[in-house]
Nucleic acid binder design. Structure first.
Length: 488
RNA sequence: GGUUCCUUGGAUGAGUGGCUUAGUCAGCGGUCUGCAAAACCGUGUACAGCAGUUCGAAUCUGCUAGGAACCUCCA
């Protein structure tokens, strides 16, 4: 590949040139949701961030295998070792089969992602479907001597591991500090050290989700699934592992330790983490209870929302910030994103109708190059968007009849918009089509044709009546140089 | 307390050691228009504070203040 794609690697805390293990193949693993509740705005961030990466890598010519897991087992409340399984708890509360809960929220997650324009990953493995692989992985760690059995459960021996490798390299911690700050938790007598984490947990008698293993009937520890499934589908070494920043510790740290212990080598080459979405300067999250679900955004049905927001508004809002910055949610910011995106859409529509002239009378920058440069610099989507706005000015000026554009430049602009706005940023701008839609569009057009006629006759009463009545119904009518435009 | 990071104009949000310090939204002025809307043009004392490095820093270093994330489940 010719390009130089820079990716910020959490492991080195620097931007690095991206070099896949085996060109043109790229393996990419991203931590997906735990399906025990509706997805909220925070869940949209990694989904969209890595969707952009997936799209851009594909555009660059890579053959990407994108794995995004579904956590449907082994994820415990409160404390990683003693809490109740999240899925099981929800199932108990709702009197459902655990897998019924999983399916319900997974369906809703998929639906929300589809609305947000997030492409489905290549593989979407479930933790519950890979118990055997996880047990095998635990065995490897036991064989390597970095884990021990205690009361039917298997724990990772962090101290031993830290002698041979460095535990904490991703999050910049060392175990001495960790030991000092680790809280005393109940029921840790099984563990040799407070830092040790469960690889396999023996199930209590009342625990519904359980599988047989050489050690006990139980279930895998939380971090296990990513190590097992990531290496199963992408190999013992692969290129990119992504997720939210809040997963750096302990989740990704433990993953590194597990994989290194079991395989004797580093599995992941580039660790990428998206920043958080905040609300009033604070992280939006489940534990803080300050989250707004995606459906609530789509319907406007939440007390903090002054209106409903289209999925594309949410996507645009997220893309207007760099993925490693926090984004603060507010109605004002979302409304601004909504208006800004609407303007971009209108220009895109105008672009399709522009008539070319002999030459271009405005300065045309090399937008294709500018956009690509921005994307190559650690996926700088806000810059890409700013270049598109720059091009928008040309489109609108030409549409106003105040400038001209050559056929070649027009073609280039169309291609750049299709490539960056639609294909890479993944924004949907097309209007709904269909027979019913076409019929009603024709009707509105007809009304406005009549209005145009009235205007020619200086019949302002009729022309204003049509415009005002349409406005009352929610249509926005805009007069142009030689006709009209309208939108809802 | 430890680790990591942040602080940019009315709101949001990029960015680089010096070239015009993006863009969006809002505001103001103008052009256009029968009027309006849209569009276009113009406009904004912005880079937390202090000190240092430098010919030059908002961008590098140090200190101070404020804030955040992680250290427990979290995207």
């Amino acid at each position: 590949m010719e390009h130089k794609l820079l990716i910020y690697n959490t492991l080195t805390r620097t931007k690095q040139i991206f070099k896949p293990l085996k060109e043109p193949y790229v393996g990419m693993y991203v931590c997906g949701p735990t399906v025990y509740g509706d997805g909220h705005l925070g869940h949209a961030r990694p989904a969209i961030t890595f969707d952009i990466l997936f799209r851009f890598l594909t555009h660059l010519g890579y053959k990407v295998r994108y794995v995004r897991n579904i956590t449907d087992v082994g994820h415990l409340e409160h404390d990683a070792d003693e809490g109740e399984d999240k899925i099981a708890k929800k199932a108990r509360l709702e009197q459902k089969e655990p897998m019924e809960v999983v399916q319900y929220y997974l369906n809703r997650y998929h639906s929300a992602m589809e609305k947000l324009g997030v492409l489905p990953p290549s593989i979407e493995p479930h933790a519950s479907g890979h118990i055997i692989e996880q047990i095998d992985f635990v065995k490897k760690i036991l064989d390597a001597g970095y884990a021990y059995e205690s009361e039917g459960s298997i724990y990772f021996d962090v101290k031993k591991y830290n002698k041979d490798h460095r535990y904490g390299k991703l999050s910049g911690r060392n175990i001495e500090d960790l030991l000092e700050t680790t809280r005393e938790l109940d029921g840790q007598s099984e563990k040799h050290c407070a830092l040790d984490f469960a690889l396999w947990k023996k199930a209590q008698p009342e625990h519904i989700m359980r599988w047989p293993s050489p050690w006990s009937d139980g279930f895998p520890g939380w971090h296990m699934e990513c190590s097992a499934m990531g290496t199963k589908y992408l190999g013992e070494e692969f290129d990119i592992h992504g997720g939210g920043m809040d997963l750096i510790f302990p989740h990704h740290e433990c993953e590194i330790a597990q994989s290194t212990a079991a395989l004797g080598k580093e599995t992941v080459h580039y660790w990428m983490h998206n920043n958080m979405i905040t609300i009033n300067g604070q992280k939006m999250g489940k534990s803080l209870g300050n989250f707004i679900t995606l459906d609530e955004f789509f319907t406007g049905n939440h007390k903090l929302l002054t209106q409903a927001y289209a999925p594309m508004t949410i996507r645009f809002f997220i893309l207007q910030a760099h993925y490693r910055s926090t984004v603060d949610f507010s109605n004002e910011a979302l409304v601004a994103a909504e208006k800004g995106f609407a303007r971009l859409c209108e220009s895109y529509a105008r672009l399709q109708k522009l008539t070319p002239s002999k030459e271009t009378s405005m300065e045309m920058k090399n937008y294709r190059q500018l956009c690509e440069d921005a994307m190559l610099d650690d996926l700088n989507t806000p810059i890409v968007i700013s270049h598109l706005y720059d091009a928008t000015r040309i489109i609108n000026t030409v549409a106003d009849g105040k400038a001209t554009i050559s056929e070649a430049d027009l073609k280039e602009l169309k291609e750049v918009f299709d490539l960056y706005l639609i294909e890479i940023l993944g924004m949907r701008v097309e209007e709904n089509s269909g027979a019913a839609n076409d019929a009603y569009k024709g009707a509105v057009d007809l009304l406005l044709e009549i209005r145009k006629q009235a205007k020619t006759n200086k019949d302002w009463a009729t022309s204003d009546k049509i415009r005002d009545e349409l406005a009352r119904l929610g249509f926005k009518v805009k007069d142009t140089k030689d006709g009209f435009e309208w939108s809802l």
